[in-house]
Structures are given as C-alpha cells and as structure tokens.
C-alpha cells in the first residue's frame, strides 16, 4: 500500500532530517487491512533511526505528538485502530512551544 508520511515539529530529526517519505507498507497478511497500529510499528522499525522514545511510548505515539490522516486528527477517524487506504497522507507532528 502506497502512503505519504510526513514528519514535523522536530520529529523529522529522528529520521535523518527527511520530512516527507513516500513509502510502500504491506499489511501483515494479504487479506488484512493496514491499521495505524501496524503503520506505527513499521515506522518505528523502518524509518526511525535514533531515540525511538521521542516518537513512541508503548504501542502508540508519545504524548505531545499529533497524528493527522488526510488533514484530519486521527482521534476523529478511529485512532490507532483506524484502517488506512491507498495513497493516504499521514502526518506526525510534534507540538511546538517556542515563541
């Protein structure tokens, strides 16, 4: 399944300072859907190069990280159990506090 992943608010530093990643992620088995839970595990093992605790806590994102699927807060679309579809755009953004 082709997805566009974006990292912002400093999370890009965890994946070699690359903000936008065009990726192909396969579901666990052929007939199953790919959920956000699967995607997070894939991101953690395939994209995050350092300090994974700055991205995840347990099996979900750490506090202070917003997940947006097609410009919508994932909490509005099922959160971690949400099923992804071909060409979805998933944005991981760390909230900023500076000014």
């Amino acid at each position: 399944m082709h997805l566009t992943l974006e990292f912002g608010g400093g999370l890009d530093l965890l994946c070699q300072s690359v903000k936008i990643h065009q990726v192909d992620v396969a579901p666990k088995d052929e007939n199953a859907k790919l959920t956000m839970r699967d995607l997070l595990a894939w991101v953690r093992s395939s994209l995050i190069k350092e300090r994974p605790e700055m991205f995840m806590k347990g099996d979900t994102v750490r506090p202070g990280v917003l997940v947006l699927v097609n410009d919508c807060d994932w909490e509005l679309c099922g959160g971690i159990d949400m099923e992804l579809e071909e060409k979805d755009v998933v944005v991981f953004i760390s909230t900023l506090h500076g000014g």
């Binding site: 400093g10 605790e53 700055m54 750490r62 506090p63 202070g64 909230t95 900023l96 500076g98």
Partner: peptide
Amino acid sequence: IPPPAAACQ
C-alpha cells in the same frame, strides 16, 4: 499528558 522534557526544544 505533557510530552517528555527532552522533547521540548
């Protein structure tokens, strides 16, 4: 829940 202090740049 607040983020870990290390995440606050």
